[in-house]
Write a protein that binds this DNA or RNA. Structure first.
Lengths: 226, 226
DNA sequence: GTATTATATGAATAATCCTTCGGATTCGGA
DNA sequence: TCCGAATCCGAAGGATTATTCATATAATAC
């Protein structure tokens, strides 16, 4: 895979021994804690180092500057998310529309809530970074994965499948972000887990042209572009 | 209306003459331009003043510090948004579920896209501010407005109406934010304008228990197809 | 056990930025 | 026209923060 991390943001060096790997992890964790406890405007290298139990100098051994640390954290989380979603798309291929929808919603929610603190912290930090390339990558990969998945639905076809894939992603990621940023209230998360699948299923059903049965319905794509 | 703006964030003084009102507007505009052109990490008082064609000192005549300026901008935009949505909720009272849904989605999209630059800029800045009270206010007001609206639907009732209102808002605001933050691509906005109403209608229909009210032959309004 | 490499330290430095304040300028009203 | 109030100016001060580097310690290799 092409590593297109901009030079200016690349980590300075990779940990070679066990203790340094632990150090980097501690720095990651500390960054999240400081962000949640103090907010992004009070996220300083000193505070992170202190909370991580290391010195500032140690931080700069692995990251050329503060932004590269944040960039690395975001990159790691987005890569994990992307891999998870791509995996789900594989697994769901050929299934029913409803199953696909539920699978995607559940997978996304699980991924984002498996480490709520990290998710919330990274939302806070993303707006201060140049993340265009990261977003472009995940957006492209996940976009085509979901588009392909939808195209393989055993019971439906779509007119503008790209648009459907896009709207689906925007609503899903947007709704989850809204709730997490508001504090990740458990009650609100419960509501999302129940109603987001309903919404997504309903949307897909509404825009799908039913192609019932197994008799090789046509894959006549009508309008590939908007 | 109760003005609950925290003292620390309150503007220093209000413009009394015409020129000073123009100055404050210029500062607002400049802030948006700097944010979009340079990013939130390069938003400095000097740069804003320069772009606004005023001196830093002038800025501090109206705002005690940088954050209060940003807070004021966010507050203004959120207040406008809230008023618009409440107005739509008034106007739609008693209508059909589908009409309500379309009205809300359209109103929200119009509001957020009437000044796209401002919307995008404020997304960038919000994460660095203490916006809990602002969010709480708009969330509460818009929440109950929509909940009431839904309760007045002529053709439907809901089990957990609070949850429906909540999910509706989260998906709507989240989806729009996702698209605006990605650059507000016109093609993507077109897709949203077409598909978001479909999604929201479909969701409401899915969770509504039909109550053919009055004598009306209120057959479910058929879902629109692509 | 020694040499070599990896990792850690933190005071000092350098850069950036926010905010102030005394004084100049312009406006509105009498 | 004149005066007080409003507005504006911007260099200087002050506070914060990112980043470096010479040095020290620990792990690994031989």
């Amino acid at each position: 895979m092409t590593n297109t991390t901009p030079d200016l943001l690349k980590p300075r060096k990779a940990p070679r021994q066990a203790r340094s790997a632990a150090t980097v992890d501690a720095i990651f964790d500390a960054t999240i804690q400081v962000l949640l406890a103090e907010g992004s405007s009070r996220l300083t290298t000193t505070r992170v180092a202190e909370r991580a139990g290391v010195s500032v100098g140690t931080m700069y051994q692995y990251f050329p500057h503060k932004k590269s640390l944040l960039y690395a954290m975001l990159q790691r989380q987005l890569a994990k998310l992307r891999d998870l979603i791509e995996a789900v798309c594989w697994r769901m291929e050929g299934r029913t529309l409803g199953e696909m929808s539920d699978g995607l919603v559940t997978a996304y929610l699980d991924a984002k809530t498996s480490n709520i603190e990290a998710s919330r912290a990274l939302y806070l930090v993303a707006s201060g970074l140049d993340t265009d390339d990261l977003i472009a990558d995940i957006s492209q990969r996940v976009g085509t994965a979901i588009t392909r998945l939808l195209a393989s639905a055993s019971d439906s076809a779509f007119g503008d499948i790209e648009a459907v894939s896009f709207t689906f992603r925007a609503a899903l990621s947007g709704a989850v972000r809204t709730v997490l940023e508001r504090g990740a209230n458990p009650k609100e998360l419960t509501v999302l887990r129940r109603d987001l699948p309903i919404m997504c299923r309903a949307y897909l059903s509404a825009v799908a042209e039913e192609t019932p049965k197994g008799g090789g319905a046509s894959k006549a794509d009508a309008l590939p572009h908007v």
